[in-house]
Design a protein around this nucleic acid. Structure first.
Lengths: 185, 185
DNA sequence: TTTAAACATGTCAATATATACATGTTTAAT
DNA sequence: ATTAAACATGTATATATTGACATGTTTAAA
């Protein structure tokens, strides 16, 4: 299905970028819904170039350091827009190692369980705070036809996801901490 | 990291199962947080068997149809419990093709955008309803040391995830539907 | 009795992803 | 002047995942 292809085309459709810059995007803001290492990006760019969907100009920094700044071609843009219009079925819920662990958590004693959950909670709250700080840069909903609209709605989605995870963990911690009535009797 | 290995060991630790049954699990209830096709499961079972972590007995249905019922070994259980105790960092947020599309949604006209979002919403509400129906089977929180506790908390997590997605989509649809003030003036 | 669905197990090829290997330049701070 | 961080681009190997290929049996419904 080559989603990375369209992720790259979409970014290059916004503005020309080098492989290095793409890799940075895929490891910072974009990482909330898509990511890739440079070891995947450089070969994909080469492929897209062979397919005529992107082209590049070489830029020189200093004396010899070369950077290839890629831009999307007309053909590339057509392909991207076609992909963007595809109406798709909802995908499988994503794999989640922590939930897998929790599925088997009855094999852990309650103290360990709560420790694990609270550890996760702490990390998720931290991420949530970072996201909320980023969101402060948007005093209002951006123009619906600007790039920033997409940035904003996926950021909102990321925040809501983190809030949901924290709420779920709180609920789970609650279940584990309630005194066992049977033990009391 | 071989997570499938531990997913299988965890299930076999609950009760002996055949590859076919494991595949079914990984495509129904478990699919809310982990999944695999039989083409991944059969080779993994063979590998686990070679490693001495699982063993099997052959069962015959009818005249000749053979099924291998796998059970976990002591060594397998040790390995599984060790994995279960590992305290892990939160993982990268999962990839999400729909969010990727929405990130680029400024390239779509508002009508198409809203259509896509409402289509997704409909499907997510449907899944949410299914999950809530399943949840009705739990009149109360199951015993914390029973298998069903794990079943229950991940089910709760799945419900909360679906609710979050629907809420996010509602928010996005709202942004797209609000009349553009500038157009009015 | 025929037929469809469910049972049952496997392999193969193509993609996708992660991690490490590999090399070097430029910039900014100490 | 030195050094660390950031810039910049690639390859290779191992693992994970998907979807198709491949083959057959048993059960329950029509």
């Amino acid at each position: 299905m080559r989603t990375l292809k369209y992720a790259i085309l979409g970014l290059l459709n916004r503005k020309p970028m080098t492989g290095y810059e793409l890799a940075k995007e895929f490891n910072y803001e974009l990482a909330e819904f898509w990511y890739a290492n440079h070891s995947q990006i450089y070969p994909e760019l080469k492929k897209l170039n062979n397919e005529g969907l992107v082209e590049f100009d070489v830029e020189i920094s200093g004396d010899i350091l070369e950077a290839k700044r890629y831009h999307i071609t007309e053909e590339g843009k057509d392909d991207f827009i076609k992909w963007l219009h595809k109406d798709v079925k909802i995908s499988k819920t994503p794999k989640d190692k922590f939930r897998l662990r929790m599925y088997f958590s009855n094999e852990l004693d309650l103290t360990t369980r709560v420790q694990m959950m609270e550890n996760q909670r702490l990390q998720h709250v931290k991420r949530l705070n970072t996201l909320m700080k980023t969101c402060e840069q948007y005093p209002e909903v951006p123009e619906r036809d600007s790039d920033r609209f997409g940035d904003f709605i996926v950021l909102r989605g990321a925040i809501m996801r983190q809030e949901m995870i924290v709420a779920w963990l709180d609920e789970c911690i609650g279940y584990c901490k309630v005194p066992d009535l049977k033990e009391k009797e």
